[in-house]
Write a protein that binds this DNA or RNA. Structure first.
Length: 278
DNA sequence: GTCCATGTTCTTTA
DNA sequence: CTAAAGAACATGGA
């Protein structure tokens, strides 16, 4: 459930609870969530201190005090939460990491664990090699992408703009919800060929993407079913969706029924009137 | 039983 | 050879 705003929220809630703490793997019930499969997570993490937690695209990147790094991808149903060690682990908890006390004095939060659970197991942990970039093959961050650069990237493909925006190599971090919401705000039909957009349209799209993502981050992401931040809290943006998952309901701008089509194998929602012009 | 789901990657087709 | 389309992955809920 994690697109950029959700991952950003997880990182924001995770960082203050993890930076400076030491790690000890307490349970790895399914080692097939770790890539490469040769990475011995318990050995690699034992006693290491977390130096930083950051986001790149939809990846949550951990930096350790020995210079090693790994990232977690939440897939569709992944959750990364910090909880009291004596609280029962929910079903599908694949990895449990005991957190040591913070280094200077900290004190607060002994007996805590970092848990990774993921029923569908599309997510997992990726251990990075010494010089391996955390974002190989990944496009730029949409929040800092300039319109001219977006135009250039969209000009490189004939696919529908909706499909192109879902491609993490074009722009990193957008998913099905926020592409639909951004295209609605930009008043662009999802089936328009990416390379056919005019400069004004790309300008609108660029602004719409940034506005949509910032709003969603401010509301701590969208919870459709599984998404939770590191504290276990749901997001609040789902009630503000303009078109996503609103097929048949009136457009919030013009009252026309929101349409649903399938594009790139994903359900796609748009207003046939506000986003007309194929 | 059927269809659908916030994602990515591999395979097949054009 | 390359780009695009489609299937596959695993689980649960409606």
């Amino acid at each position: 459930m994690p697109e950029l705003p959700e991952v950003e929220t997880v990182v924001a809630t995770l960082r203050p609870r993890l930076v400076g703490r030491t790690l000890v793997v307490a349970g790895l019930s399914r080692d097939d969530i770790v890539t490469p499969s040769t990475a011995d997570l318990p050995a690699l993490l034992a006693g290491r201190r977390v130096v930083d937690v950051s986001r790149r695209g939809k990846r949550i990147v951990f930096a350790l005090d020995d210079g090693c790094r790994f990232y977690v991808h939440l897939g569709m149903t992944g959750q990364l939460t910090v909880a009291a060690a004596d609280a029962a682990a929910p079903p599908h908890t694949h990895l449990e990491i005991k957190l040591g006390p913070a280094v200077p004095a900290g004190g607060s939060g002994r007996g805590e664990v970092l848990r990774f659970r993921d029923p569908r197991r599309f997510g997992g942990v990726w251990w990075l090699g010494p010089d391996e970039p955390a974002d190989r093959g990944m496009g730029p961050e949409p929040l800092t992408l300039r319109p001219a650069a977006l135009a250039l990237r969209l000009a490189g493909t004939a696919r529908a703009v909706k499909v192109a925006l879902l491609d993490q190599a074009v722009v990193a971090g957008l998913g099905n919800i926020y592409v639909d919401e951004s295209l609605f705000l930009a008043r662009i039909h999802p089936l328009r060929p990416a390379r056919g957009l005019t400069a004004p349209e790309v300008g609108r799209l660029s602004r719409a993407i940034k506005l949509t993502l910032r709003r969603a981050i401010r509301h701590r992401g969208s919870t459709l079913r599984d998404y939770r931040d590191a504290d276990g809290n749901a997001g609040g943006f789902q009630s503000l969706h303009r078109v996503y998952d609103r097929a048949g309901e009136p457009c919030r701008a013009c009252r026309t029924a929101v349409a649903r089509i399938v594009l790139g194998g994903r359900s796609t929602h748009f207003c046939p009137k506000c986003q007309e012009g194929l």
